[in-house]
Simulated scan of single mutants.
Amino acid sequence: MPVYRGCSLWMNGLEIADTVSYTPPEIKITQKLFKAGAMNAPVPVDDGTELMTASYKCQGMDAMAFMVFGIIPGVRARLSVRRAYRGPLEDITMIEEEVEGFVSAIRADEHGNNDKDTIGQIVTVSASYYRVSANGVYPLLEINPVLGLRKILGINVLGMPGNFMSLIL
């Protein structure tokens, strides 16, 4: 089983050197219940993806976060993350994520006299685009709500025909 080794973060191409932690977006489906006339119980139906937010904590202050705070015309926050995992055969797997959107919250830690080296800020990015790939090559997940895309292993599952066999034949 692969063991987590660490991660690196970049905001718009500039490395965030003092990153303490990173929380990727939670991928969650909004469900609606559907019940037709002859059905004795409702069934859940996929109604899209819920709001995605990613956050990271860094020591000190991340000045880049202030430059992309809020919705600024023509400016987007693009958070690039590389997480490394070491496998049982000493092979290293990289999970690469891209989160694009805008910085929706910046929260500074409480400033006191103790533990000055751990004081920093938590930055939250509200995502309008999210992509996960393995080793930078294998696409695992891509979500773009604006374009109506939800690709899993490179296949847009929202654009699949009603007859799944027509994809194979």
Rank of each mutant, 00 (worst) to 15 (best):
M1C: 11
P2N: 13
R5A: 14
C7Q: 14
S8Q: 05
W10R: 13
L14C: 10
I16C: 07
D18L: 00
D18G: 04
T19W: 06
T19N: 01
V20L: 10
V20G: 05
P25F: 07
E26S: 13
I27P: 05
I27L: 08
K28T: 02
K28R: 15
T30Q: 13
K32N: 06
L33D: 13
F34S: 01
A36I: 08
G37W: 00
A38F: 15
N40G: 10
N40D: 15
A41D: 03
A41I: 10
V43S: 08
P44A: 05
D46V: 01
G48Q: 10
T49Q: 10
L51R: 13
T53W: 01
S55A: 13
S55K: 12
Y56T: 02
K57L: 04
K57C: 00
C58L: 03
Q59E: 02
G60D: 05
D62S: 03
A63I: 12
A65M: 00
A65P: 07
M67G: 10
M67V: 10
F69P: 04
I71S: 01
P73C: 05
G74D: 15
V81A: 07
R82K: 15
R82N: 13
Y85N: 04
L89S: 11
L89R: 13
E90D: 15
D91Q: 15
I92M: 14
T93K: 14
M94P: 07
M94S: 09
M94E: 12
E96K: 02
E98C: 05
E98L: 12
E98D: 14
V99A: 05
G101A: 11
F102Q: 00
F102K: 03
V103T: 05
A105M: 14
A105F: 10
R107P: 08
A108W: 03
D109Y: 06
H111N: 09
G112K: 02
N113A: 09
N114G: 09
N114T: 08
G120I: 06
Q121C: 10
V123G: 00
V125C: 00
A127G: 04
Y129S: 05
Y130M: 08
S133T: 11
A134W: 14
N135M: 09
V137D: 15
P139G: 10
L140F: 06
L140G: 06
L141N: 07
E142L: 14
E142I: 03
E142K: 13
P145G: 03
P145F: 09
L147H: 11
L149R: 09
R150S: 11
R150A: 06
K151N: 09
I152S: 10
G154M: 03
G154W: 07
I155V: 15
V157S: 13
L158Q: 14
G159V: 02
G159R: 09
G159Y: 10
P161R: 01
G162D: 02
N163K: 11
F164V: 11
F164E: 02
S166W: 07
S166T: 14
L167A: 12
L169Q: 02
